[in-house]
Every structure is written in C-alpha cells, then in structure tokens.
C-alpha cells in the first residue's frame, strides 16, 4: 500500500509544470524514504532529478517499493482538476496498475477521486558522481528566468561566466550582443533577493538557452535557484521545494567543434 498526503496540492502542480516541458513520461519511484524521479529528456541532452522526502508529506506510507510509470500529460489533466488549496492524497495498491489522486476541499465538503492508468516504462538510471564544483551561485529564481528569457532572443546559447566579483551572462547572434552582469549582493533585506557566489576557480561555460528556459519552469517552486558549475562537467540547476525536497536539472556545456 502506498499513500502520500500533501495539504498543499499546489506543490505537486508546480512540480509537474517544472518537468512536463522536458519529459513526456516518467517513473515515480516510491519507497519508504519518499518519492524520487530521474529521467532524461527525449533527446538525452538533459537530466531531471526530483526528490520529495517522506518526512515532508503530511502523511506518508509505503509498505513496498513501487515504481509508477506516469504519462505526464495525463497527470497534468488530473492535477488541473485540483484547487490550489485542496488537500491531495496519492494512493496505490502494491503491484497496482492504477494510481488514485484524491482531492479534498479544505472544509472536506467536496471530495474528488481521479484514477489514472500507470504505464510500464523502460527506465534507465544514471549515476550522478559527487562533484566539488568550482563555482556555486545562488540568485533569485525570477531573476534567472528573466535573464535566460531575455538572452534567448539573441542566440541559441548563453555563456555563463563566474568570478569572485560576479556572474556574467552573455549571448550573441544576428541582431547583436547582450551582456548581463550580476554582482554579489552585500546586504539585502530579504535572503531571497540575495546573489551569493562561492568560488574556488573562475569558470566560463556555454549552455543551450532552450534547456535553461525549460529548467526555469520550476521558478514558482522556490524564490532562489542554485547554479553549480565546473569546467567540462554538467551544470546543475537546483530549486529547493519548501521543506520537502528539491528538483535538480543537469545540462552538459556545449563544446567547440
């Protein structure tokens, strides 16, 4: 028996928005420790890794490990039926081919049950090595989304350069060049507005705007985003999901032909 209850169903709605542009389907691996998902996008360029810890749920029970293959477009249709303030419970029997999403209004006067068929997906898990990154940058997630969106107008790629002084995002193409520099903030009223840099070595890497824009769909999950970079290894873009977990996206830098 698997049962997971979230008072804020909006969290799962936002998680879905954060993955459905990259993934058509994915396996939600449920265990005693929580719900995990790891999947590459269709072109195998980027990797999405989601972790929702069992202790972050309002109620969580998973007697046997369960892998739920889910069509994300179908799940999205169901999640659209939930109000943001509804309480969500996901339920499945052991070895089930169905998952039930139950939504309850706050006053418990309306209860909705949606059953969805599960799929058998060939899942390939990748081993992500422990890495000490040369630069770890934290910045407001809305700022990151805005920068990536703005620079996407100039070209297919954005160069992210990090030094102790700050971060520079650059793009260039037929219409011209664009540079956006962010300095490390010295003092801000709110932590979520801060730009912080932990740097061992300066780094400058080129990334595909298209994927960064897809990662930025996670912006509603967290006020801050963390970028971890080292030369010649994939960038990690991480959004914390409240006290329940995180979503991480991995994208290899472009290399000169």
């Amino acid at each position: 028996m698997f049962e997971a209850r979230l008072v804020q169903s909006s969290i799962l709605k936002k998680v879905l928005e954060a993955i459905k542009e990259l993934l058509n389907e994915a396996t939600f691996d449920c265990s005693d420790s929580g719900i995990q998902l790891q999947a590459m996008d269709n072109s195998h360029v980027s990797l999405v890794s989601l972790n929702l810890r069992s202790d972050g749920f309002d109620k969580y029970r998973c007697d046997r490990n369960l892998s739920m293959g889910i069509n994300l477009a179908s799940m999205s249709k169901i999640m659209k039926c939930a109000g943001n303030d509804d309480v969500l419970t996901m339920k499945a029997q052991d070895n089930a081919d169905l998952v039930t999403f139950m939504f309850e209004s706050q006053n418990q006067e309306k209860v909705m049950d949606y059953e969805m068929k599960l799929m058998n997906l060939d899942q390939e898990h990748l081993g992500i090595p422990e890495t000490d990154y040369s630069c770890v940058i934290k910045l407001p997630s809305q700022e990151f989304a805005r920068i990536v969106r703005d620079l996407s107008q100039f070209g297919e790629s954005v160069v992210i350069s990090c030094t102790k002084e700050g971060i520079k995002f650059s793009a260039g193409g037929d219409i011209g060049n664009a540079n956006i520099k962010l300095a490390q903030t010295s003092n801000v009223d709110k932590d979520e507005d801060a730009v912080t840099i932990e740097m061992q070595e300066p780094v400058s890497l080129t990334f595909a705007c298209r994927y960064l824009n897809s990662f930025a769909k996670a912006t509603p999950l967290s006020p801050q985003v963390q970028l971890s970079m080292s030369a010649d290894v994939p960038l990690v873009v991480e959004y914390k999901i409240g006290d329940i977990g995180h979503i991480r996206y991995y994208l290899a830098p472009k290399i000169e032909d």
Binding site: M40, H44, V45, L47, L126, P234, A252, K254, I255, D257
Partner: peptide, 14 residues
C-alpha cells in the same frame, strides 16, 4: 559551431 553533448557522455548508466 558549438556541439551539444548528451548527458550520457558524463553520467554512466547505473
């Protein structure tokens, strides 16, 4: 022209 490597070139299948 810059090339986009696959993520599988960095992370091996487990």
């Amino acid at each position: 022209m810059a090339l986009q490597p696959s993520i599988t070139e960095y992370f091996a299948t487990r």
